[in-house]
Simulated assay, not measured.
Amino acid sequence: MEDIIFLIFWVSVGMVVYAYVGYPACLMGLSLFRKSGRVETDSKGWELPRVSFIITAYNEEKQIAEKLQRTLSQDYPQEKLEIIVASDCSTDKTDIIVEGFGRGRIKLVRAPERRGKEFAQKYAIEIAKGDILIFSDVATSLDVQGLRTIIQNFKDPSIGCVSSEDRFIDAEGNISGEGIYVKYEMFLRKLESQVNSLVGLSGSFFAARRSVCCHNWATDLPSDFNTLLNTIRSNMKGVIDPATIGYYKNITDEKKEFNRKVRTVLRGISVFMRNFSLLNPWRYGLFSWQLFSHKLCRWMVPFFLIIIMFTNILLVQRTGYLFLLLIQGGFYSISLFWYILRDTAWAKEGHKMISWVKIPFFFISVNSAIALAWWKYAMGDRATFWEPSKR
């Protein structure tokens, strides 16, 4: 029996290590032999396509005018740029502002009832005339060349969707130090693009071919993840474009940030469960391994952590296992230490060790959010309704 517990312990440890270190290491190894991602093609004979820029909004009266002005200022042929605001039944002045903006340059589509972000986007897609559809949140800012840059990727006919790279900005609009998790995620997406395809898009700003969006558009699933999976089913791939930066502000309220993580994972699990067939490697090849590694393995980490702690306690009489248990206890204690002191003057002064103290806390916070998302999914919650995070 003890040998079985021993095996379970080390398999669980191995799965946690694989989820965060092993998978990117495998991608790095594959990148030495496989090169995918953006293909530089001759611009001759390729014209900029018609683009429909879809902005989804719910009660954004404070930010919508600025977003529309920034979008109109994009360096893209105006005759080829269609701007549509998809209102998810806003109850403030958002719709009124949109209707009076841009002298008819902006189209407003209001969903007949509030059923979530993707439901509103569906109505925008139905009237969109562009060959390429851009999806953006109100809070996301772009460089003036952002639209033209992301569109260049579609010279490659094998690319069905493109994600921007996420970048944090502070309250004054200056670029701030990204969190370790965001840096890690962007690094992982770049590796995936080099090897084969992304496994997820940035929900705040991404582009897709019209053909990808007009089939199997689910109104109850997150459009970023579902669009990527639709792209794979269409025998195309998704890539990240590091030259296209989507700027957005930090959520300063940690409780809201935690709830956002729970909602994001819950919606992602819903997509995954409805597309389980994509794990078939005989049909979807390398992408099946990527989907398993990037999504499922990461989402199973909370359960492996519980198993590791429990089996470690059972094995504590073995040589070395008391030390491993103390390491775990120390890790969780550091997390608790930061949770208690994060609002103190010491924490806010920005001591050098703070960034290291934050790592255990953030790791536990993320995996707690994942565990809660699984619980909500088991209880039947699907987080269909959407409300933008106030930043």
Rank of each mutant, 00 (worst) to 15 (best):
C89N: 11
R114W: 06
C89F: 06
L108E: 07
E113Q: 12
T91G: 10
I97P: 01
K129G: 09
I125T: 00
V98H: 10
S87E: 05
I96R: 15
G100H: 11
G104M: 11
K129R: 15
I97W: 05
A111R: 07
G116P: 00
G102D: 05
E118R: 04
A111N: 07
S87W: 04
Y123C: 00
E99P: 01
Q121C: 13
S90D: 11
Q121R: 14
E113P: 00
G104K: 15
G100V: 04
R103Y: 14
I106Q: 12
A124D: 03
E99K: 15
A111V: 01
S87L: 04
L133A: 02
G116C: 11
I106G: 10
R103F: 07
R110V: 13
C89G: 01
L108Y: 08
L133R: 05
E126S: 13
I106S: 06
A124E: 07
G102Y: 09
I97A: 11
R110H: 08
G116F: 01
G100Y: 12
A111W: 00
D92G: 05
G116A: 03
I97V: 11
E118L: 08
K93I: 07
E118Y: 04
F119R: 08
G104C: 10
G130C: 11
F119W: 08
F135S: 05
L133K: 00
L133I: 13
I134T: 02
F101D: 05
I127F: 04
R114K: 13
E126N: 14
V109R: 04
S90Y: 11
I127G: 10
Y123D: 01
E113I: 03
P112G: 09
G104F: 14
R105V: 02
D137W: 08
K129D: 03
K117M: 12
K107R: 15
F119D: 01
G130E: 02
F135A: 02
A111Y: 00
S136H: 09
I132N: 00
I97S: 05
I127Y: 12
G100L: 07
R105E: 12
R103D: 15
E118V: 00
D137T: 03
R105L: 07
E118S: 15
S136N: 10
G116K: 08
R103E: 15
V98G: 02
L133T: 04
D137A: 05
T94I: 05
F135E: 04
I106C: 06
G100K: 14
V98S: 00
T94P: 04
G104S: 14
Q121I: 04
Q121F: 14
D92E: 14
G100A: 06
G130K: 09
V109T: 02
F101E: 09
I97C: 05
I127S: 08
I106R: 09
A124M: 03
D92R: 13
K93C: 08
R114E: 09
I96Q: 15
A120P: 00
I106W: 09
D131F: 03
F135P: 00
P112Q: 04
R110F: 06
R114A: 14
I125Y: 11
V98F: 13
I97H: 02
C89I: 02
G116M: 07
Y123Q: 06
K117E: 08
R110S: 15
K117R: 13
K93M: 08
I125W: 02
K93W: 01
R114L: 12
R114V: 00
L133P: 01
I106P: 03
G130Y: 06
A124W: 01
K107D: 06
A111K: 02
G102R: 10
I132W: 01
S136K: 15
